[in-house]
Design a protein around this nucleic acid. Structure first.
Length: 1068
RNA sequence: GGGCGCAUAACUCAGAGGUAGAGUGCUACCUUCACACGGUAGAAGUCGCUGGUUCGACUCCAGCUGCGCCCACCA
C-alpha cells in the first residue's frame, strides 16, 4: 500500500495490509513521541504539532505497563491489557494530556529459570549445575534477548503506543539498584528478617515459594491409620490421677459423660465408613479406632478387646505416611475423654526405638476427625509446626530438598517419598501396627509453578514483615487515595491484607536479584569458636573450621549452626558491590529474591527511585494500574505496600482490574483442551486446518489428540477470519464487561470485523462526493442544515458524551458499543442513505450536496477520531484520506495526535431527533407494508401516509420526497387518517402516529389477512395490558403523574393502532 | 468452612422499578450505482426457582437451586 494513493480505497478493508503499513510507518510513532513525551526536567517540547486546546500539562496521565514475563509469547492476557491500556492512553493523549505509558519486561525468576533449564536438558542433556551458575545465567540472558524482543514486537503489532524508548527490564542495573536499596532499607529497619521457619518447599524447582504461589487442589488420596504403641502401661498412670489403674476400666466410654455424645457423633460416621475400606487392604487387620468402641454395636467382647488396645496404643491417621519418620509427638484434644488419661504418656516409634513420642494435649485437634489423635511432625506440617512451638517440641526434618528421605530417615534414607510411603506401609503391616486405610478427598497444596505437591519444610529464609505495610495498603484504599474498579474487589483486598502472613522472599534459584546481604566471615568464624567454647565441647562446626574449609563451606556451617540473631549481627545489607579488600572477608548470600519483590518495586524503580529523580516527582503516583485480578495479591498489593512504605503515598490513583480471557463457554483457555484462541490467529486469521496443525505440534498424549482436534473443529468450524489487531481490540473492548470473564467468541469477532469494513466502505462512499464539492466549516452552515443534518449531528454529540462518560469509569464495552451503534445504525443506515437523495430534483440535490457533504465529512472524520483509541490502524488509514479534505485545513497529520472529540451541547437537537424518528417510522412502515404485500423492492409504487391528528402533518409533507427516496416509493402522498377510507386491496402498516399504505397492492389476500390478524391480536393484547394498569384505582393515585400521562398516551396510540388494523382487515 | 461473581433469545452478552435489547445465527425477499464482511422485513425469551416490598418487579430484598472463581491449618 502506498501512502500517496489516498484517492482509492480498496473495496474491502484488508486489516492485515493496513496494519502492516502503519506498523512500518515510523513517522506516526515519531508524531506520538513528540506530542506525548514529557520531559520532566522541563526541557523544551520539540513539538511540530500544535498543542491541543485542552492541554493538561499539569497532570500527566501515566500508566505503568504490567511487564510481561520473558518466558512467554503473546497470549490473550497481553492482548486484553494492551487493548485497554492503549485505549486509555490514546484517549488521554488525544485529549491533550501528556501521557506516559511505560513498558517493561519481567525477568520472572522461577518461570524463566525453569524453561531455560528445560531447554538445556533437552538440547544438551545437561543440568544447570553441570554448566555452573555463571554460564547458566549467560544462557538466561541470551534467552531474554531472543524472547523479550519478540514479545515487544507482538505488543507493537497489537498497536500498543507505549513509550518504547523507556523500556525497562527488571534486571536492568537501575532496577537492581532499586531492589538492593529497598532490601537494605527494609533490612536495616527490621522489616526483613532471616529465620528458620516452615516454608512452602517446591521439590521440583528446589526452592521455597510464598504462600501466594501455592494452590490448593482437591485430590483423591488415602488416609492411612496406624498405631503407636505405648512405651509401657506405667506411663499411663501418673499423668491423670483419675485414670483407673486397671486395664479394663481404662475404657474411654466409661469416663465419658453423656453430654459428650454429640461431640463424638462424627465417629459414628467413621464407623460406617469402615465398611468402605478397600477390600485388598487386609480387612482382618482393620480395627476400629478406640473412640468407636463405645458406640460400636458389636458385642461386649469386642468392646473390651478395643478397650485394652486403647491403653496399649494410640491410633493416628495420615495422608502422608512418610512424614511419620519425623513424628515427635501425638496430640489429642484436652477435653477428649478417650485420651485424657494418656496425656503425658510416651509412645514408641516403631523405626526409631530411641525416640520418645510424647502424648500432648492441644486444642487444635478435632476429636471427630480420624481417630481423634494426631501425629505431630513439626518439620513438615504448618499446624504441627505451630503445635511444636507451643509445646517446645523438636523439629525433625526428614526430607531432602528434592523430595527424598534424608539421613534422619534411617532405613528409608535416600528413597523418593512415594517409595518410602509404600515401604513404610509394608513395614507397619509386618509389625502389626497398620490398622486400615480409607480413600479420602482432600486438599493438596501444589506449587503454582511446577504443579508438584508442596512439601512444608523447615529452612532458613528471608521474610518481609508485612503487618504494618499491609495496614497502610488497606488505609489508602479505605480513604479513597487509591480507588479500585470494580469496587467489589475492595472486600477481597481487605480480607487478604487482614490475614496476610509474613512474606518469604528468598528463593533458592540462580536467576534473579541476588540478596544483597553479605556475611562477615571473620566474625562468623569467631562466633563458631565462641559457640563451641560456651558449650564446652568440640562441635562439628569447630572441627570443620580447624581442618580449614572453603569459604562457602564455612558460611554453610555457620548458617546451619548459629542462632539467627548472631548471623544477623554478623551480616550487612549493602547496595554497593564489594571492594577488593572486602571480597576477602565478606561473602554474599547465594539466594535470590522472589520475582514479586522486584516487580513490587515497579512503580518506584521504573521512575529512577531511590534517586529523587524528576521522573519520580512528575510521574508518581500514576493515574491507573490496569491489570488482571489474578495478580491482585501477588503484585498489586505488594506494589501498594512497598510504594506506600517508601514514598509515603500510594503508587496509583486508580486500580482497574480486568477479567480473565476465556473461551466461548467460559472455560480457561488451554492448549490441551483445544479451546485456546491465539490472538495472533485472530489478527491474521487461520483456517480450521491451520488451527488443527498447530495443535498437533503442541506436546500432548497421543490418545488425547483426536479429542483436541474435534474440540477445535467444533469451536472453529470455519476457522477464524482475519480481524486484524483492530478487530481483536474492538472485540476485547466490547466483551470486557466490567468484572466479567472475557469470553472470546468467534461470531462476535466476525461481527466487529464486519463493522470495520462498514466504516471503511462508508468512507469509500463519501470520498468522491467530498472531493467533488468544496467543504465548508459547520459553523457557517448552521442555518442551512436539513433535518437529517441536524439529526446526525445531534446523535454524534450524544455518542461523544457516552464515550467520555463510559471511559471515565472504565466501561470500555459501553464506549465502544456507542461508537459501533452510531456508525452503523445511525450514520450508515440513515444518514448516508439520506445524503444519497435518490430521485430528488437537481435543485434539491445541489442544496443537499452543498450542506450535507460538509456535514458528512465532519461526521465521518469525527467518528474516525472517536474510534481511534479502540482501532488505531484503520482509523489512521481513513484519517489519511479524510484529513486533506478538511475545510479548516487540519494541521494534525496523524489521527493519533489529533484532538479527541469533545461533547458540545450546542449541537444537541431534540426536535430534530423526534422529527427524524417520525420519518423513520414512516419509512419503516412503507418498507414493511411492501414486504407484507409480497412486492419486490424493485417495484416503485405510490404510497399514502395516513397521519394522525396530533402528528405534525407538515413534517411529512415537507419531507415526502426524502421518505419516498428512503423507502423506494414512486411517490408519497400525506393525508389525515381521520375519515380516510382505504380503498379495497390497500395494504396498511400501522405505526403509532403514522400509517403507511400501499394502494395498489398485489398481496396474497389470504396471507395478508393472516398477518393483519396476528398484528391485531398482538396490539389488542398490549392494549388490554395498558388498560388494565390504568384501570387500577391505586395506579392513578400513587404512580408519578408523568408515568400516568405516558400510559394514557400509550393507550390512545394503541387504540388508534387497533383501529387502523381493524380498518385494514375490513379492507381486505 | 468463609467470601465474591454469574444465571436474560439457539449462541455470546448489554440493560434496567413503568410495554424486553445488541451482535452472531435462523426465515423470507433483494446483487438498489459504499459495503454480500451488504440491504429490507421477520420469527424467536414465563429475564434460574420460591417468597416479600411496591399501584407496578426482569430490575429492589430474603431464601433456594445450579455454575464459576478466590481464600482457609482439617491430620
Amino acid at each position: 500500500m502506498q501512502e500517496s494513493s489516498g484517492k482509492e480505497l480498496p473495496k474491502t478493508h484488508d486489516a492485515v495490509a493496513v496494519e502492516r503499513y502503519w506498523l512500518k510507518n515510523g513517522a506516526c510513532r515519531d508524531a506520538i513521541n513528540r506530542v506525548s513525551v514529557v520531559d520532566p526536567a522541563g526541557g523544551k517540547e520539540s513539538g511540530v504539532e500544535p498543542p491541543h486546546s485542552r492541554s493538561s500539562d499539569a497532570i500527566p496521565y501515566v500508566i505503568l505497563m504490567p511487564p510481561p514475563n520473558i518466558t512467554g509469547t503473546l497470549h490473550n492476557g497481553h492482548a486484553l491489557f494492551v487493548t485497554l491500556q492503549d485505549i486509555l492512553i490514546r484517549f488521554h493523549r488525544m485529549r491533550g494530556y501528556k501521557t506516559l505509558w511505560l513498558p517493561g519486561l519481567d525477568h520472572a525468576g522461577i518461570a524463566t529459570q525453569a524453561v531455560v533449564e528445560r531447554a538445556l536438558r533437552v538440547e544438551e542433556g545437561k543440568s544447570r549445575r553441570d554448566v555452573g551458575r555463571a554460564e547458566f545465567l549467560k544462557r538466561v540472558w541470551a534467552w531474554k534477548e531472543r524472547n523479550g524482543n519478540r514479545i515487544i514486537e507482538q505488543l507493537k503489532a497489537l498497536g500498543a503506543s507505549a513509550d518504547w524508548d523507556r523500556l525497562v527490564f527488571t534486571m536492568d542495573p537501575n532496577h537492581c539498584k532499586a531492589v538492593n536499596e529497598a532490601f537494605a532499607r527494609l533490612w536495616n529497619d527490621g522489616l526483613i528478617y532471616r529465620g528458620r521457619r516452615l516454608v512452602n518447599w517446591d521439590p521440583k524447582t528446589g526452592t521455597a515459594v510464598s504462600d501466594e504461589e501455592v494452590e490448593h487442589v482437591t485430590r483423591k488420596g488415602e488416609l492411612v491409620y496406624f498405631a503407636y504403641p505405648l512405651r509401657g502401661l506405667a506411663a499411663c498412670h501418673p499423668c491423670i490421677p483419675s485414670c483407673h489403674p486397671c486395664v479394663s476400666s481404662c475404657h474411654p466410654c466409661e469416663s465419658r459423660g453423656p453430654e459428650m455424645d454429640s461431640r463424638f457423633r462424627g465417629n459414628d460416621k467413621m464407623e460406617g465408613g469402615n465398611d468402605k475400606v478397600e477390600g485388598g487392604n487386609d480387612s482382618s487387620s482393620v480395627t476400629p479406632a478406640p473412640a468407636s468402641a463405645g458406640v460400636n454395636s458389636a458385642g461386649v467382647h469386642k468392646e473390651s478387646h478395643s478397650a485394652r488396645r486403647a491403653c496399649e496404643e494410640i491410633i493416628v491417621a495420615t495422608t502422608r505416611l512418610e512424614t511419620m519418620l519425623g513424628d515427635v509427638a501425638v496430640a489429642v484434644h484436652p477435653q477428649d475423654e478417650r485420651y485424657k488419661h494418656l496425656v503425658g504418656a510416651t509412645l514408641r516409634h516403631p523405626f526409631f526405638p530411641d525416640r520418645e513420642l510424647r502424648v500432648i494435649a492441644d486444642a487444635m485437634v478435632k476429636p471427630e476427625f480420624g481417630s481423634g489423635a494426631v501425629k505431630i511432625t513439626p518439620a513438615h506440617d504448618p499446624n504441627d509446626f505451630a503445635v511444636g512451638q507451643r509445646h517446645g517440641l523438636p523439629c525433625l526434618s526428614v526430607l531432602t530438598s528434592d523430595g527424598r528421605i534424608n539421613d534422619e530417615g534411617g532405613p528409608y534414607r535416600g528413597l523418593p517419598k512415594q517409595e518410602a510411603r509404600r515401604r513404610i506401609e509394608e513395614d507397619l503391616r509386618k509389625l502389626g501396627l497398620f490398622r486400615k486405610k480409607e480413600p479420602i478427598e482432600h486438599n493438596v497444596s501444589v506449587s503454582q509453578r511446577s504443579g508438584e505437591p508442596i512439601e512444608p519444610m523447615i529452612s532458613r529464609q528471608y521474610f518481609v514483615r508485612t503487618e504494618s505495610m499491609a495496614r497502610k495498603a488497606r488505609e489508602v484504599v479505605d480513604s479513597g487515595e487509591t480507588q479500585i474498579f470494580p469496587s467489589s474487589w475492595k472486600k477481597t483486598w481487605n480480607h487478604f491484607l487482614c490475614n496476610i502472613q509474613d512474606w518469604c522472599v528468598s528463593r533458592q534459584l540462580w536467576w534473579g536479584h541476588r540478596i544483597p546481604v553479605y556475611y562477615d566471615l571473620h566474625k562468623l568464624r569467631d562466633a563458631i569458636q565462641n559457640d563451641a567454647r560456651q558449650r564446652g565441647k568440640e562441635t562439628t562446626a569447630l572441627r570443620a573450621l580447624q581442618t580449614g574449609v572453603p569459604r562457602r563451606e564455612l558460611l554453610r556451617i555457620a548458617l546451619d549452626t548459629l542462632e539467627d540473631e548472631w548471623i544477623r549481627a554478623f551480616s550487612v545489607a549493602s547496595v554497593e558491590d564489594l571492594t577488593a579488600e572486602q571480597a576477602d572477608r565478606y561473602v554474599q548470600e547465594e539466594d535470590v529474591l522472589d520475582t514479586w519483590f522486584s516487580s513490587g518495586l515497579w512503580p518506584l524503580a521504573t521512575l529512577g527511585w531511590p534517586n529523587k529523580t524528576a521522573d519520580l516527582q512528575t510521574f508518581y503516583p500514576s493515574a491507573v494500574l490496569e491489570t488482571g485480578f489474578d495478580i491482585l495479591f501477588f503484585w498489586v498489593a505488594r506494589m501498594v505496600m512497598l510504594g506506600t512504605h517508601f514514598m509515603g503515598r500510594s503508587p496509583f490513583a486508580h486500580v482497574y482490574l480486568h477479567a480473565m480471557v476465556r473461551d466461548a463457554h467460559g472455560r480457561k483457555m488451554s492448549k490441551s483442551l483445544g479451546n485456546a484462541v491465539d490472538p495472533l490467529d485472530v489478527m491474521r486469521g487461520a483456517t480450521l486446518k491451520q488451527l488443527q496443525d498447530k495443535a498437533r505440534q503442541h506436546p500432548m498424549a497421543a490418545d488425547r489428540l483426536p479429542q483436541v482436534l474435534a474440540g477445535i473443529a467444533k469451536q472453529f468450524p470455519e476457522g477464524i477470519p482475519a480481524a486484524g489487531a483492530d478487530g481483536l481490540r474492538l472485540s476485547l473492548a466490547i466483551l470486557s464487561g466490567q468484572g466479567r470473564d472475557v469470553r472470546l467468541a468467534v461470531p462476535r469477532i466476525t461481527g466487529y470485523r464486519a463493522f470495520l469494513n462498514k466504516l471503511w466502505n462508508a468512507t469509500r462512499f463519501a470520498l468522491p462526493r467530498l472531493q467533488q464539492s468544496s467543504l465548508v466549516p459547520l459553523q457557517q452552515l448552521r442555518k442551512e442544515l436539513s433535518l437529517p443534518d441536524r439529526w446526525i449531528l445531534s446523535c454524534l454529540q450524544r455518542t461523544i458524551r457516552t464515550v467520555h462518560e463510559s471511559l471515565a469509569v472504565y466501561r470500555f464495552d459501553a464506549a465502544a458499543q456507542a461508537v459501533y451503534h452510531f456508525v452503523w445504525s445511525q450514520l450508515c443506515d440513515w444518514y448516508v442513505e439520506c445524503v444519497k437523495c435518490d430521485g430528488l430534483s437537481p435543485d434539491c440535490r445541489d442544496a443537499i450536496n452543498r450542506v450535507s457533504t460538509s456535514v458528512l465529512w465532519h461526521v465521518l472524520e469525527t467518528s474516525v477520531r472517536l474510534l481511534h483509541p479502540f482501532c488505531p490502524f484503520i482509523t489512521e488509514e481513513l484519517w489519511r484520506v479524510l484529513r486533506p479534505l478538511s475545510p479548516q485545513k487540519l494541521s494534525h497529520r496523524f489521527c493519533c495526535t489529533s484532538p479527541y472529540p469533545e461533547f458540545d451541547a450546542a449541537w444537541v437537537d431534540e426536535a430534530a431527533e423526534s422529527d427524524m424518528e417520525l420519518l423513520q417510522q414512516a419509512v419503516t412502515g412503507i418498507r414493511a407494508a411492501r414486504a407484507e404485500s409480497g412486492l419486490p423492492p424493485s417495484r416503485k409504487l405510490p404510497v399514502i401516509l395516513l397521519v394522525d391528528d396530533a402528528a405534525p402533518r407538515g413534517l411529512f409533507a415537507s419531507h415526502a420526497s426524502l421518505v419516498a427516496s428512503l423507502a423506494r416509493a414512486a411517490s408519497v402522498d400525506v393525508r389525515a387518517r381521520e375519515g380516510f377510507a382505504a380503498p379495497k386491496g390497500a395494504v396498511v402498516h400501522p405505526g403509532t402516529v403514522v400509517h403507511a399504505m400501499i394502494v395498489r397492492g398485489e398481496a396474497d389476500v389470504q396471507a395478508r389477512r393472516r398477518t393483519v390478524k396476528q398484528q391485531l391480536e398482538k396490539a389488542r393484547k398490549e392494549l388490554a395490558t395498558v388498560a388494565a394498569v390504568l384501570a387500577g384505582a391505586a395506579f392513578a393515585q400513587r404512580a408519578p403523574a408523568a408515568v400516568v400521562q405516558a400510559k394514557r398516551e400509550q393507550r390512545v396510540a394503541l387504540e388508534k393502532k387497533v383501529g387502523a388494523l381493524e380498518q385494514a382487515l375490513q379492507g381486505l
